[in-house]
Structure formats: structure tokens, C-alpha cells
């Protein structure tokens, strides 16, 4: 009796010990996955990755803006009301007084000539999904023709 149970305990212990690296590995893997999800967006070149690379340094990772310097894109009515001006703003920049979320901004946003029309489209669809109207059609090529 005692023998059996003690040997089964030993067996159990052995099995747990054997499984430990797997458990640890799984934990590390999950933690790594979580950390990665927080810092590096899933796919390079995706809308969220492009936003993180080209927009968030000013507008904030969550589009929250900064003081009266960088407007909060999460609260911009352009996304829902006037998305056709977005490609022009992204490519050629923006200056002069604007009102976002009831606050006045009067700064200079530099244009970004490195982004292709496809990349601009992915950034816009990322912003629309988070803060705007995701059902709006996005026609970057056409909209770019009308830049002032």
C-alpha cells in the first residue's frame, strides 16, 4: 500500500518535473506573445503598424494627441465627415488654425511623401476602424487628385 502510493507520488512528481519545461516554455511563450502584442503590431505594413511608425510619435499611440500641439485624431470629425481630405493631409501636411474636439490648434504638420497610396489607404482604414466610420469607402488615388 505504502509502496504503491509513494511510487505513484514519485511518478506524479516525475511527470510534473518532466512537464515543467513545457509549462515554463508555454508561460514564456504566452508572456512573449503578450509583450509582443503590446509593442510590435502583428504584421509589418499593416494599418496599425504604419500608424505606429508614421503618426503616433505626434498624435499618440491611441490617437490621444498632446496638449494644444498635436490634435487628438481619436476625436477628429474628419474621419466620419470628410475622409476624402485625409490622403492630402497625410501626403502634403497641414498648417493653419483648426478646431478638434472643441479646441483650437494652429501648428504645422509636415507632409509624408514616403507613404504609397496603398499604405495611406491602410492607415485610413485603421483609423476608421478605431475612431471613425468603418463602412466608408476609401478611394485614396481619386482623393489625392483633388489636393489643394
Amino acid at each position: 500500500m505504502t509502496n504503491v502510493s509513494s511510487s505513484s507520488i514519485v511518478n506524479l512528481a516525475k511527470r510534473v518535473a518532466a512537464a515543467l519545461p513545457v509549462v515554463v516554455a508555454a508561460l514564456v511563450w504566452t508572456a512573449g506573445g503578450l509583450a509582443a502584442a503590446e509593442t510590435v503590431p502583428a504584421t509589418a505594413g499593416s494599418g496599425s503598424a504604419l500608424f505606429a511608425e508614421h503618426c503616433s510619435s505626434c498624435h499618440g499611440a491611441a490617437g490621444e494627441g498632446f496638449r494644444s500641439l498635436y490634435p487628438p485624431l481619436a476625436r477628429s470629425r474628419i474621419l466620419a465627415d470628410e475622409p476624402e481630405v485625409l490622403p492630402c493631409i497625410i501626403r502634403y501636411g497641414l498648417r493653419g488654425e483648426i478646431v478638434v474636439d472643441g479646441r483650437v490648434f494652429n501648428q504645422v504638420m509636415p507632409g509624408n511623401s514616403l507613404l504609397s497610396a496603398g499604405e495611406i489607404a491602410r492607415i485610413i482604414s485603421h483609423m476608421q476602424a478605431l475612431w471613425g466610420d468603418e463602412n466608408r469607402a476609401i478611394e485614396v488615388e481619386t482623393w489625392l487628385e483633388d489636393c489643394k
Binding site: 508614421h54 510619435s57 498635436y70 509624408n112
Partner: peptide, 16 residues
């Protein structure tokens, strides 16, 4: 510089 798109906006936040 004020129109720097890369690290300056982050430096500005930190200096603030």
C-alpha cells in the same frame, strides 16, 4: 526642430 516627424515629438513630450 518643430517639424521633425521622427524622434522630436517624443523628445518634446519627455522634455515637457
Amino acid at each position: 526642430f518643430t517639424t521633425c516627424p521622427s524622434i522630436c515629438p517624443i523628445m518634446t513630450r519627455q522634455m515637457t
